[in-house]
Each structure stands twice: as C-alpha cells, then as structure tokens.
C-alpha cells in the first residue's frame, strides 16, 4: 500500500503476574494499520483487546515487542515522552466517556490543548479551536453545558471532540457505543464514519459484529494472539 503506516507492531507481548499466576494478556501480536484505515478489534472477554488498546494508545508499554507509531519507535519512551505522544498523536474515545465532571463541554475539549507544550496558543485561540471541533460534532449550542446536563450521546460527542482537538494521527475507541442506546449509538457510529471519510485513522474495540461491519478490517483476538483478520468488503481509503 502506498499510504503511510500509522501503526506497526512486532511481537507485542504483555505478561501480567509471575510464576503460577503468570498471564500472557498479549502474546506476539504483530499488526499494521495504514493512514485513513478504520479497523475493528474483536474477541471474547479476556482475549487481550483492552491490553492491546492500552499499548497502542501509549497508556502502557509492552513487556516485549516493538511498536512504531507514525514511524516513531515508542516502545522505549519514558512516561513524560509517552504523555507527549498521547497528547499530540492520539485521541481516545472511551466507553464511559471519561469527561471531567462539573466542567463545561468547552473546557473539557480545551483540556488537551492546555497540556500541549509544543504549540503556543493563547487562551482565546484554544477556545476558538475547541469551539470549531464542538461545532463539527454538532454541539455548538451545548458548549457551556456540563456532562451531567448532557445525554449519553452528547457526552460521547464531547469526548470525540476532545479526542480530535489536537488533530491526532490515530483515534482509539474502546467500545464507543457500549453505554448508548441503539439510536445514539448509530449517531456516534455515523460520526466516526464521517471522520473516517475525512481521512481519520481509527482503531475501535467492539463486541458487536454489526458495528464491526462498518469498518474495513476486523482483527479477531483469542487468548492474546491474533486469531484472524477479516476484510469487511470495503476498500481502505487511498
């Protein structure tokens, strides 16, 4: 493929515990995700989906194996460097939204910009950037609302806006519709599709085959290993 590689892993292994309690949550996972791809991760409970997401999202480091994110070897980075990567290159969408309570939608979205030490922006500029993203996810009229004043779907939109605000190269979504009813879930999936169509690279964990079928590829995990990778009959964007 001609597009650049966003994710490239080689033999990712994550071991928890020692001795008899030793668990290989991930066992030699090698995957590649190209720019603009929409990939689903599926598998039974305990198969290592969250563990893989955490490593791909730079929230933790693998016990062994290599991970190149956007051509940068991140498996050897320290805590501070990983924080920088999370801030600039990755946007998270969690099942439970994970917004700061008693903080307005706007302030929640501004947050990643505040932790961005590479780009100089005034408070006004940050607000402007955040406003733009909130508009994009269709929440222009809710920016001053706090999470507890928003519906689940709206909260997830705020979370998506927060994930997008620093223009990351990779969007990680761990069961983004898991807490939503089917209607709001469909709306969130539509939003992710729109993002995908605009060129975003998305890796999403889901339990639903239906939702997985929206993506281009599904990676099936089993006992910490790749069970199979299935194309969903859609072409990756070039």
């Amino acid at each position: 493929m001609a597009t650049r590689l966003i994710i490239k892993t080689k033999d990712l292994t994550q071991i928890y515990g020692m001795g008899d309690a030793r668990v290989a949550a991930l066992d030699g996972v090698s995957i590649s995700v190209h720019e603009g791809e929409f990939v689903a991760i599926m598998g039974p409970s305990g198969s290592g989906k969250s563990t893989l997401m955490n490593i791909l999202g730079c929230l933790s480091r693998p016990t062994s194996g290599a991970y190149f994110l956007d051509d940068e070897d991140v498996s050897g980075l320290d805590k501070v460097e990983l924080a920088g990567i999370r801030n600039k290159k990755i946007g998270y969408i969690f099942q439970s939204y994970n917004l700061l309570s008693r903080t307005t939608a706007l302030d929640n979205v501004v947050l990643p910009l505040q932790y961005d030490r590479l780009t100089e922006r005034t408070t006004e500029e940050r607000k402007k950037v955040a406003m733009k993203v909130l508009e994009m996810v269709g929440l222009a009229d809710r920016v001053e609302h706090q999470p507890q004043e928003l519906s689940g779907g709206q909260q997830q939109r705020v979370a998506i806006a927060r994930a997008l605000v620093n223009s990351p190269v990779l969007i990680m979504a761990d069961e983004p519709t898991g807490n939503l009813d089917s209607k709001s879930g469909a709306e969130i999936m539509q939003l992710l599709h729109d993002l995908h169509n605009q060129g975003a690279t998305i890796v999403m964990v889901t339990h639903s085959t239906e939702i997985a079928s929206h993506t281009e590829r599904t990676i099936h995990l089993l006992d910490g290993k790749i069970d199979k990778i299935i194309g969903n009959g859609k072409k990756a964007k070039q």
């Binding site: 929230l59 805590k79 501070v80 801030n87 947050l111 932790y115 927060r162």
Partner: peptide
C-alpha cells in the same frame, strides 16, 4: 487518569 490519557505528564 483522564488527564494522563490526554497528555498530562507526571
């Protein structure tokens, strides 16, 4: 945890 996930350093 939320702050860390969006880039807060120690």
């Amino acid at each position: 945890g939320i702050r860390q996930s969006i880039g807060a350093t120690p």
